[in-house]
Structures are given as structure tokens and as C-alpha cells.
Amino acid sequence: VRAIDVKRLPTVRNGMLSMWRFVRFVLGYRRSQKRHPQRVAVETSADRCTHCGRCVKLCPTGAIVAGDELRTDAAKCIRCCACVKGCPVGARSYDSPFAPVLSRNFAQRKRNLTLM
């Protein structure tokens, strides 16, 4: 029988705890949005945009108009981020309030698991 040094065992983070923290944040965010509504729209970098028109073609709601690619109509935008993903030069970005919380709560990658 070998002795096991408990200090050397890898610590396993509880995924449910991370999920609970994120759900708590989302519920608090939704409550604050009811009191103080705020529409977050996709932003476009004027110096990086080449006006190629790809974002106009990719937008399913028509929130981006050809010739005025720098502006996104926040009332029409459904925040699908199709324009952000499809921009060939990376000129479009979406600063979500959930991004920092997601990275903080789910920063640790899962271990690889092989299923047979």
C-alpha cells in the first residue's frame, strides 16, 4: 500500500458552481435591464472597414445598409453576430456584457475525454 500525498492531487473545479454563478449574473442582468433598458449594438472600426459590403449581405434583418456599413441600426439588430463573424478584416465587434463573466466563470478548459 502506497501513501498518497493529497496536496499533489489535481483540484477539480465544480462545473455546476461556475454555471450557477453565470445564471445568477444573467438573472441579475435581466432584472437591471427591466429597470434601465440598454440596447447594445455592433460597433464598426472606421479605420479597418473596407466597405466591401459583406456585412450587408450577411445581416438577416437588414440592420446594415449598403454604403453606410459603419452604422448598425440597433432597433433592427438581433445580435446574431453574423456580420462580426463574416467580416474579412475584423472591423466589426460586439462588446457583450456576458463576455467577461463567461471568461471568468468558464476559463478552465475541460479535460479531453475519449468516448468509445
Score class of each variant (00 low, 15 high):
2 R>P: 09
9 L>D: 01
74 A>G: 05
25 F>T: 02
33 Q>T: 02
27 L>Q: 09
65 V>E: 15
85 K>Q: 11
35 R>S: 13
99 A>N: 08
9 L>C: 12
33 Q>V: 00
65 V>Y: 07
22 F>V: 03
2 R>Q: 09
76 K>C: 03
19 M>G: 06
79 R>P: 04
66 A>Q: 12
40 V>S: 05
23 V>T: 00
60 P>E: 04
71 R>S: 14
11 T>Y: 07
23 V>L: 05
74 A>R: 14
106 F>K: 08
90 G>H: 05
66 A>Y: 12
54 R>P: 00
32 S>I: 01
108 Q>W: 04
89 V>L: 05
31 R>W: 03
107 A>Q: 10
71 R>L: 11
74 A>S: 15
112 N>Q: 08
12 V>H: 12
19 M>D: 05
62 G>W: 09
71 R>C: 05
31 R>M: 11
57 K>M: 13
45 S>G: 05
56 V>I: 04
5 D>F: 01
77 C>K: 07
40 V>M: 03
78 I>F: 08
24 R>S: 15
80 C>Y: 02
2 R>H: 04
93 S>F: 00
22 F>N: 08
83 C>L: 10
111 R>C: 06
34 K>S: 02
105 N>F: 13
50 T>E: 14
32 S>Q: 14
29 Y>N: 09
46 A>D: 07
94 Y>G: 01
44 T>A: 15
106 F>C: 11
27 L>V: 11
56 V>G: 04
9 L>A: 06
91 A>K: 09
30 R>T: 10
43 E>Y: 10
97 P>M: 10
73 D>V: 09
54 R>N: 14
81 C>R: 11
55 C>W: 02
12 V>S: 11
7 K>S: 10
91 A>H: 09
42 V>G: 03
74 A>F: 08
91 A>G: 01
36 H>W: 00
86 G>N: 00
74 A>H: 07
12 V>K: 13
24 R>K: 10
92 R>A: 12
104 R>D: 15
36 H>L: 04
67 G>S: 04
58 L>Y: 02
18 S>I: 04
91 A>C: 03
45 S>Y: 09
36 H>G: 00
93 S>T: 12
94 Y>E: 00
38 Q>M: 07
18 S>M: 01
102 L>G: 06
92 R>Q: 14
33 Q>D: 02
44 T>R: 13
105 N>C: 15
54 R>C: 10
25 F>M: 02
16 M>L: 15
41 A>K: 05
107 A>G: 15
93 S>Y: 05
15 G>T: 00
110 K>T: 11
98 F>R: 01
55 C>K: 01
102 L>S: 09
42 V>Q: 03
33 Q>N: 01
9 L>Q: 13
80 C>M: 10
72 T>V: 15
83 C>H: 07
44 T>N: 14
104 R>K: 15
110 K>W: 07
78 I>S: 08
101 V>H: 14
103 S>Q: 12
113 L>Q: 12
63 A>E: 00
19 M>L: 11
35 R>A: 15
15 G>W: 06
101 V>T: 10
46 A>Y: 00
102 L>Y: 12
11 T>M: 07
48 R>W: 07
22 F>Q: 07
18 S>P: 02
56 V>E: 05
80 C>V: 05
115 L>P: 03
91 A>R: 02
51 H>N: 13
46 A>G: 00
69 E>I: 09
17 L>R: 11
